[in-house]
Design a protein around this nucleic acid. Sequence first.
DNA 1: TATACGTGGCG
DNA 2: TCGCCAAGTAT
Length: 328
Amino acid sequence: MLQQTQVKTVIPYWERWMRELPDIAALAAAPEQRVLKLWEGLGYYTRVRNLQKAAQQIVAEHAGQFPRDCDAVLALPGVGRYTAGAITSIAFNAPAPILDGNVIRVLTRLFDIRENPRDKPTNDLLWHLATQLVQAAFNFQPSTFNSQLLLSGPCSALNQSLMELGATLCTPQNAKCPQCPLRSHCAARREGRVDELPNLGPRAAATAREFHAFVVEQDGEFLVTQRPARGVNAGLWEFPNLEVTGATRPPPDSLKQLLQITARCEPLCEVKHTITRYHITQRVFRVRSAAAADGIPTDTRWLGLAELHALPFTSAHRRILRRLATGS
DNA sequence: TATACGTGGCG
DNA sequence: TCGCCAAGTAT
């Protein structure tokens, strides 16, 4: 859950998740729709499918016991170098390095590394520095006093401290350098370059795309279609929709029919969101004539409002559902 | 090796 | 309003 997602966002999801699926066996055995529902709104949906695969792999290959070996952890689906290091260092105090967005920021500033940390040589250097730091922590002999501050172990404490520093003081903007325990060691601060680092380079601009979506109601049920198994929001359910500008394929007749109807419909709302390459605007229309939906060729279902909430919708669609439920 | 993948919060 | 970024991974 924490991959590319802020702790604050994750907490309510994690609490609900742990109530519903309290252990590895429960996750491994759960229906995929239930697991997706618990993840609904968190984004990056392949993470949750990988997480369930990982649970099933642990049941099959590790007798249901979470592996302690770093290579076995790394072999789990959805677990990369960072997550394997985070788990084994934080949980087992293994001297495994971590490098996330926070640590990249802390280290590029601490050592005044001006190259783009996304470039391979610079990324290698940062992993090397993170390795040396956690090794030093592993060799550290705590005194009686500070051992009380290292209950989870020095490697665990070091890695969590690096991330926490980046999350609280060494922030992307308005870094709180006067409060930083490393201020006297920080090369970027000494050079007055804190605001210039990390140097991530420019981002590719997103292209605007516009869609019309149709909320088709019939006897208290709503028409939904399932997205393709690949690509954005793979396999999730949504209202039938059509790209209005820049469409690459001609719309099916039934959708064309819906599109013509939109001229007589009041827009329900407008939803905007951005993914890597596109700014997406969805104008959502309410269609009361169910006949308009006849013969829609894609995978479709009629579902009641309560059932709709049982499906893995994107948050944009959940906002619309709330409006439908409240009648506003 | 470079891209694509979601969403929400913040200045 | 808009751009940036977040406890990264898979392909």
